[in-house]
Nucleic acid binder design. Sequence first.
DNA 1: GTCTATAAATAGATAGAC
DNA 2: GTCTATCTATTTATAGAC
Lengths: 198, 198
Amino acid sequence: MQRVSATKEAILAAALELGALHGISGTTMEQVAERAGVAKGSVYYNFSSKDKLFGELLTTGVSKLAQTLHDARLSASGFAGVEAMVTAMLSLLEANRALSKLMAAEIFRTDRAWQESIFALRREALTEIEEALVPLVPAGTSEAMRLLMAGGIFGATLMGGLEWLLFSPQTPVSDVAAALLFTLSGKLDAGPTPPTLG
Amino acid sequence: MQRVSATKEAILAAALELGALHGISGTTMEQVAERAGVAKGSVYYNFSSKDKLFGELLTTGVSKLAQTLHDARLSASGFAGVEAMVTAMLSLLEANRALSKLMAAEIFRTDRAWQESIFALRREALTEIEEALVPLVPAGTSEAMRLLMAGGIFGATLMGGLEWLLFSPQTPVSDVAAALLFTLSGKLDAGPTPPTLG
DNA sequence: GTCTATAAATAGATAGAC
DNA sequence: GTCTATCTATTTATAGAC
């Protein structure tokens, strides 16, 4: 009584790897079928269109990322919460390299069929970080500013993580987390300071 | 005695806008020609292939980014140098939104014809940031660690910048810079500390 | 230098046998 | 559920008139 069939799993895995290598538009359904070890007809039997296939892939992936950040945020408070989120996100990137590359390339696209749901999930992930920042920024800081900061932390982790996985994958995750957190610590770590930001 | 013809300029501009909207693989030479107001034959007269066209576009763009970071680094020392680089990069992103989106989507692709030159230029940009970090990190910090930090700062600026331009473009660049720099200040700003990083 | 027309290959998607 | 075969449209690229 498995949730999804083995064929569907194989198709999703093939699409993920090919999408990370060549982008979504650069990946053909024929290639997906070949890599999954099935015929193209079987791909269309499981996914009615290319958009549906990659939409499901990305929605699931970003959703998992948001959930990971949520769990990490609840695991610690103060700056330790941010540390936990960065570290958990790095581990997720390491365990899902293909998905990470795909996300990085697709997260700002504005012309996809699945755009709305991805944007909503991305916002969900950012909001997790933003909420962890509330007690760490000056009292008068607006939510918009906190979201920009959250975007920065998210971007630092995603790009730093991809830099790591592509160009120095032998570095242990703890070192990468330490490097990224070093650039983030300091004022955040010191707790609330007088309001100087809009 | 212009360096490039008006037609070539129009083609490059059209390719840039369309590439930012639909990705490179998702943009056709026919669309580029139409948007540039020329026939497809004229596009191929100026660029022998689609790869050459987008390769030139990206190479020029990332090169400009590296140059911008270089100039900003020389304009100030210490943490002020990092501040100058982040602010200059944000201004560049704002002035070249389409290029920014294209870069974000393409900078980690590993299957492009122009991959090597882009990777070299990206590394050049990162090295600019990395050099500015030398006097700001603990004495024993390795170059690899500094490059990871640089990747984080680069990613924070790129993603924070795109977040800004896509979702709250009314925010002035100074506020965005302040938000991103707030998360980066602190330990960096405080100068060298005892070596605790590999 | 710019155009139209077209070649040659490939894409997403469907039909229908098994 | 999975396959082969195929339809239709699109894509990169070229040829050759102007």
